[in-house]
């Protein structure tokens, strides 16, 4: 006989199934999870590398990369030694990078949970999407906030065109501002268009590879972490 099981859980919810709970199995507070998405070549991996270098002394950090057909992003981070190898995990996405961060987040959630199981208490997990298009966004079941990285060389009309990444990301990074004179990009127009599209959500114009270029992004993460920690207390 097959029954519709109605067993309830001792504490009322199934531990470990959904990803949006603020707790890990056992009731421990989990790390803040930040997603980084954006088109190919906009500087997502460079942003992750710069964030790790800037924040690793003050925070316990791990990184999940979503590589499309290689382990290049994970291997770049390993080669650059931005974090010890055991703090970097690659997830394979089967030709559909947006599916793995939005529609079916199970592989990424497991990567996150394994990092927390192996490394103990973490403050911050950065989840880098495979390079995708302007509609790629992260599920709230996977991340607590998302950064969308575009660059001035990809066309200064991208903020005007909008799309879910530009309009709904919690932080928009317009990267490679140092290239603007060389590619004829109008930074003021990009900033103005972004402001118009984003309804008071923050935008940073920077060049993350230049000295100090990552500071506004790192400061934004520190503020998110302060909110997250206060929320948990």
């Amino acid at each position: 006989m097959h029954l519709q099981h109605s067993d309830t859980f001792p504490d009322g919810h199934p531990h470990g199934s959904g990803g949006s709970s603020g707790e890990r199995p056992g009731g421990r507070h989990r790390a803040l999870r930040i997603g980084l998405g954006g088109p190919v070549g906009s500087g997502k991996t460079a942003t992750v590398a710069a964030l790790c270098r800037t924040l690793r002394e003050e925070l316990s950090i791990a990184v999940v990369t979503n590589d499309i057909y290689t382990r290049e992003d994970a291997e770049f981070l390993l080669r650059e030694a931005v974090l010890p190898a055991e703090r970097i995990t690659a997830v394979q996405t089967g030709a559909c990078p947006h599916t793995a961060i939005r529609d079916d987040i199970s592989a990424n959630l497991e990567a996150v949970e394994d990092l927390e199981d192996h490394l103990g208490t973490l403050d911050l997990i950065l989840i880098e999407s495979g390079g995708d298009n302007l509609t790629a966004t992260f599920s709230k079941g996977l991340v607590d906030a998302q950064i969308f990285v575009i660059d001035v060389a990809g066309g200064d009309d991208i903020p005007r065109k909008g799309g879910p990444g530009v309009t709904t990301s919690d932080l928009l990074v317009i990267n490679k501002t140092d290239l603007a004179p060389h590619v004829g990009a109008d930074l003021q127009a990009m900033a103005r268009d972004a402001e118009a599209q984003r309804d008071r959500l923050p935008t940073v114009l920077t060049a993350v590879k230049t000295p100090g270029g990552i500071i506004p992004v790192a400061d934004w993460i520190r503020a998110r972490l302060a909110d997250w920690t206060a929320h948990a207390a």
């Binding site: 394979q92 089967g94 599916t99 079916d104």
Partner: peptide, 9 residues
């Protein structure tokens, strides 16, 4: 579309 990871295999 059941979110159980099959899309990557």
């Amino acid at each position: 579309r059941f979110p159980a990871g099959g899309h990557a295999h």
